[in-house]
């Protein structure tokens, strides 16, 4: 098949760094920032069994972005940000509302909500294609490959693309928040009952997390689209949790993984000439599979060697959404 180019290890590693190296560099930096920010927020989602809430928000921001475009026609405006974050939070509220007030289960409420909002977004984009400068490919797999061609901003004598700058600021903000509220985030995730009895308002931590999640998703949206972002939320920390039992270590590891995904993804994408964001997730998924098989503590091989097939639960595929 002619589709897969011949694999040559030298050119595999060198190709991205020849003539278009500047573009490659920014793709890697952006990929790292997106992955790291998503991974940071995502680890708490995973711990709270709310991984699919990320799915819901990432789809639901679409109508917010579309409406903001219609109102302002500018991509970098604060309005878009507000619209999209608002749509994400609205989705969270709507899911809670539906399952609190009716007998629809949280998983179904989640499914109904985000598909509806996403459909509305797609319809808006299709109807007002001339005004909304956002094509559906971008929604599906982002345009991280073009990050270098975005408007840039001169910083310390360097032309930094604005999306990269924005993502860096977001990541920095997240880190600050994490350092300030680490213990609250941990205890409310581990044992919300204890947290409440200790006087830590679990609800507010929950809303704070949802807000940060929406912000991160909105800023990642252009680069990786609505669906790949889910992988970036979940992959780093889940892979990390196969390798370590300490949350702090997992968080640090997910930052390292983020860099790895970004690099490996770029090389893959250059070799195969495919979507860089998609390739980053594929790389991440492969890394996850490696960890799953080889992890010294919890890997499949270890389990086989110990002769215990860690069959934990025979059956039962109840999707938990964290709204129970």
């Amino acid at each position: 098949m002619k589709m897969i180019p011949p694999f040559d290890i030298v050119s595999f590693f060198r190709a991205p760094w020849t003539e278009a190296w500047e573009s490659s560099l920014w793709i890697v930096i952006m990929g790292f920032l997106v992955n790291a920010a998503c991974g940071l927020v995502g680890s708490f989602l995973v711990l709270r069994r709310m991984a699919l809430v990320g799915d819901a928000i990432s789809h639901s921001v679409l109508p917010g972005i579309a409406v903001a475009f219609l109102l302002s026609t500018s991509r970098s405006s604060g309005l878009m940000m507000v619209g999209a974050v608002g749509a994400g939070l609205f989705a969270v509220w709507l899911i809670e509302f539906i399952h609190r007030n009716t007998r629809v289960k949280p998983d179904a409420a989640l499914g109904v909500t985000f598909t509806t909002l996403f459909s509305i977004g797609v319809i808006l984009i299709a109807l007002y294609a001339d005004q909304v400068d956002l094509d559906l490919e971008c929604v599906l797999y982002g345009e991280i490959g073009f990050v270098y061609f975005a408007e840039s901003f001169a910083l310390l004598g360097m032309e930094v693309p604005i999306p990269v700058l924005r993502m860096a600021v977001t990541l920095f903000g997240l880190l600050v928040l994490l350092l300030l509220f680490y213990k609250e985030a941990v205890v409310t995730s581990f044992d919300p009952v204890l947290a409440t009895s200790l006087g830590i308002p679990a609800r507010w931590v929950h809303y704070g997390l949802m807000l940060s999640l929406s912000v991160v998703i909105v800023f990642s949206f252009e680069s990786v689209g609505a669906i790949l972002v889910i992988a970036m939320l979940i992959l780093p920390s889940v892979t990390g949790s196969l390798l370590s039992d300490r949350l702090a270590h997992i968080l640090i590891m997910s930052a390292v993984f983020s860099a790895l995904y970004a690099l490996a993804g770029l090389h893959l994408a250059t070799w195969l000439n495919c979507s860089p964001a998609g390739a980053m997730v594929v790389a991440g998924f492969l890394l996850f599979c490696l960890a799953w098989i080889l992890s010294p503590r919890r890997g499949l091989l270890t389990q086989l060697r110990k002769g215990r097939r860690g069959l934990r639960i025979e059956h039962g595929c109840t999707g938990s959404t964290g709204f129970e």
Binding site: L47, R49, L180, F181, Y182, K183, E184, V186, V187, S189, F190, D191, V193, L194, A195, S197, L198, G199, I200, S241, S244, D245, R246, L247, I250
Partner: peptide, 28 residues
């Protein structure tokens, strides 16, 4: 009532008992 797969160790869990006394922004 809790998820025992949570990535914390025994000492971390016991330290959580102190969180109520610490208040916001302080670390143990």
């Amino acid at each position: 009532s809790v998820d025992w797969d949570f990535p914390v160790n025994v000492r971390d869990v016991v330290l959580m008992g102190r969180y109520g006394r610490l208040g916001w922004l302080k670390r143990p």
